[in-house]
Design a binder for these strands. Structure first.
Lengths: 388, 388
DNA sequence: CTTCAACAAGTAAGCGCTTACACGAGGTTC
DNA sequence: GAACCTCGTGTAAGCGCTTACTTGTTGAAG
């Protein structure tokens, strides 16, 4: 029997049941599309629901079914190093993260999941707590690069399934990232062999970003093995931001250093800064110095010169991340040992996870040759530049 | 007494209680920072929590405390009208929405809330259902402009507190928007009086967007009252997108129409398209035609010519929206009749809600005069343009 | 006309927390 | 030293759903 009386509180399943003259079980069944209830019953319930404007409570549902239908997404909030205003709205940087989130969301919606987003500030002291709170509110977590230490990652992974983007992975944490090594090697080859540059440099991103490490190492190694010189080290340590790129170039120039013939940046954002600093000193790109990026954010082809870069399937990364997470959620919790690695978009299948390693999805990337490396301008993207 | 046995499932409050040798009530108390538990007890509990890696379940908490500590944010997903590629990544448009969300999130975090985001496609047929589902998962909802019909809005508002952005409001729905009328009138005056233009036009946004209506009417009325001509109507009906702006201008030119001396656009995005189309035909801005926008998105000052526009405090809109929603959540559900209207950022206090009307916050905007209206270039933003 | 499968609908036991209330052990107060 | 607070804890009743299990009906089979 019903125990609650109808108040002016939001209606519950009891109110619906009473109104329709059935038990709450029946209401629940039509709510969940079970086919038991006979049409007549179903209609009465549906009618009651409509009349009452009833909406089932997500929390109660979650508690009872042990599924919240919510996945958390945590990413880093960037407070651009304010370089005096020009890059104050480095918020454009967020495009990258937001784009990934969009990818996650699209797929999530298909599965009936919603996104609980949370941007964090790395130097926040209570970060682990914050993330744990989020974890308690969802069925699984997708963490962007650089939001948690490996240890922290492992800790969260003990609570809910976790997928890490462009990050470490392992230890119950699945990883989704895009190919970096091959494309950076290809880039090095392009610069050295096709353009004949002999003196290169790589401006790094955050030193603790796995992706950054791979990019730098692949690029430098390949360049050197082709007989070119490749500058790296502290003087070339950036931080994925445009401001960082500006600083490095300014510093070098003010020291009177001879710039390399080509500078490969850890990401487009950094390249933007480099372009800026170079222009500031009247240097021509690619005439005096060639510059390349990584990511292929929308603005890359609106720059002048258009930026040569490596395209990442940004949105796909998000989509894949959700797929993986979802399978972790529906199967048992921990990152399955099924080394189901691969993936295409270009049809490629990159095998790389050693058998029975944690899930590690690697998406293909592609070198986009535009003007900044010294290639001829792309006739397909002209007029925009007239106004930008 | 404990009823559950420790399995390998995620630990619950019962496991913690058993381990610490206390009752679940005590665990709950330390979890919630009550000061009852004496230090010794608290420590035992804390220790147990740490050892077990316990994280309280959000759903259970929500169910029990009747507060989920989650607010939903619904906004429109834009699939840019693909104009052949140039504006394919009109995703940049999303910057506007994402920026607002960022504002919401920052404040939400301060109150211990997280954001459940959901982007929707207007022509989605199950939209109302989707939104209701979201509503069931949170304590309140913030709806961006153009995601729901007034009727739909009212329906959701009966379930959870709702704040609508730049939208309708009323009927239990609070609204937060930014001032449009005054700034558009000021813009009209600037164009007519300061620059002496006599023939103007206003390219509208979505016809059903309240903001758009106000902008257009204010602009036209003011312009006309100053003796200038102002073209409006079907030929000038845009849709807030760059592609829309392009189309209109192309159409007009192909018809051999004489363009007005100045074109005010409903938003920056549209202005971008207009600039593009004008450049396409070799017309000079502001020499041949002056163009203005609305929003002041980051790219506005990176364009050439720099775009004269009206700045909206985008992030503040989000922040205010959350504040309002939060007060609705903590007080009674419905949008309080307290006409607490106002707000500054510039210190201004705009009074406008008729007494006992629904909450309606209006944030101040500001006309930003740059080159595209005919004003001299701003010497403060130069060098960037060398590379963009 | 009985027997029993098949199925619709109801009953009730949780899901993992919060919290009103009850309890018992000190510490005051007269 | 009885009566009365105070306080730290424990007990147990939900919060609003889902779902295993049970009951009641109906109709086909024998």
């Amino acid at each position: 029997m019903d125990t609650r009386s109808k108040t002016d509180n939001p209606p519950t399943i009891y109110d619906v049941a009473r109104r329709a003259g059935v038990s709450i079980a029946s209401v629940s069944r039509v709510l969940n599309g079970r086919d038991n209830p006979r049409p007549a019953t179903r209609d009465r319930v549906l009618k009651a629901i409509a009349e009452l404007g009833f909406v089932p409570d997500g929390a109660a549902r979650a508690l009872s079914s042990r599924l919240k239908h919510v996945v958390g997404v945590v990413f880093r909030r960037v407070y651009g190093t304010d370089d005096g205003g020009t890059f104050a709205d480095e918020a454009e940087n967020l495009i990258f993260g937001d784009q990934i989130n969009r990818g996650i969301e699209i797929v999530a919606q298909r599965y009936g999941y919603d996104l609980l987003v949370c941007s964090v500030n790395i130097d926040e002291r209570t970060l682990p707590n914050r993330i744990m709170t989020i974890a308690g509110k969802c069925d699984g977590l997708i963490l962007h690069d650089q939001v948690l230490s490996p240890a922290g990652l492992a800790a969260v992974a003990r609570v809910v399934p976790v997928v890490s983007l462009a990050g470490a992975g392992g230890d119950g944490v699945a990883a989704v990232r895009s190919e970096s090594a091959d494309s950076m090697r290809e880039l090095a080859r392009h610069l050295v062999q096709d353009h004949g540059y002999r003196r290169l440099a790589y401006i790094a991103g955050h030193a603790d970003s796995p992706d950054n490490v791979v990019r730098g190492r692949s690029f430098a190694t390949e360049a050197r093995s082709l007989g070119a010189e490749c500058l790296t080290g502290p003087a070339w340590q950036g931080d994925y931001s445009a401001a960082g790129g500006v600083e490095i170039v300014r510093g070098l120039i003010s020291l009177g250093a001879t710039l390399p013939r080509a500078i490969a940046c850890a990401n487009d954002q950094t390249a933007l800064g480099v372009l800026y600093a170079l222009a500031e000193h009247g240097l021509d790109v690619p005439g005096d110095v060639a510059v390349t990026g990584f990511d292929d954010l929308p603005f890359a082809r609106h720059l002048r010169p258009q930026l040569t870069t490596v395209r990442q399937p940004i949105q796909d990364i998000g989509a894949q991340a959700f797929e993986v997470l979802h399978s972790m959620i529906t199967s048992g919790q921990p990152a399955p040992a099924t080394s189901s690695v691969d993936v295409d978009a270009t049809g490629d299948t990159l095998a790389n996870a050693p058998a029975d390693a944690a899930v590690d999805i690697v998406l293909p990337t592609r070198l986009i040759r535009r003007e900044s490396c010294g290639c001829p301008p792309d006739p397909a993207t002209p007029s925009w530049r007239r106004i930008v």
